[in-house]
Design a protein around this nucleic acid. Sequence first.
DNA 1: GCCAACGTTGGC
DNA 2: GCCAACGTTGGC
Length: 157
Amino acid sequence: MKTSGRYWLMKSEPSAFSIDDLAASPGQRTCWDGVRNYQARNYMRAMQVGDQVLFYHSNADPPAVVGIAEVVRTTYPDDSAFDKKDKHYDPKSHPSKPVWEMVDIKFVRKFLRPLGLDLLRKQAPLKRMELLRKGSRLSVQPVKPDEWKAILKLADE
DNA sequence: GCCAACGTTGGC
DNA sequence: GCCAACGTTGGC
């Protein structure tokens, strides 16, 4: 397995937390809490400091990849799961045996234009991208190097 | 607001 | 271990 330079995509509803919110956060960084899906959690566990992340706006108009972030801290317990009042509270997870974890990410840059789903679907190198698969709901997903390259190229056009 | 796709839960 | 019911995601 490759040990560095991996690529990911993370989804966020901009009404809840947008890339502008990330850029405006203290130190331009945030903890990525609230993930409650095992596959997404496992992908986060595989993340390493320095990995690059596509920031995606879901439930947005248009739904789009809007910029880049970077992993700055590997997984640690997601304490929002312990808080009864939190929207993402989960009694399955306990501080002595946490089920859910999170990473920290940092703002890298925002694209000059959002790369909408319709545009992405037209790109041959992205034909098999997880994001574009019908019914895909994974909020954290791996991105292949050639997919990453194709998207960055689009962003700079 | 609709609804297809998907993950989780719980009865059996 | 099966699977129906349910809740959620997220594009449209």
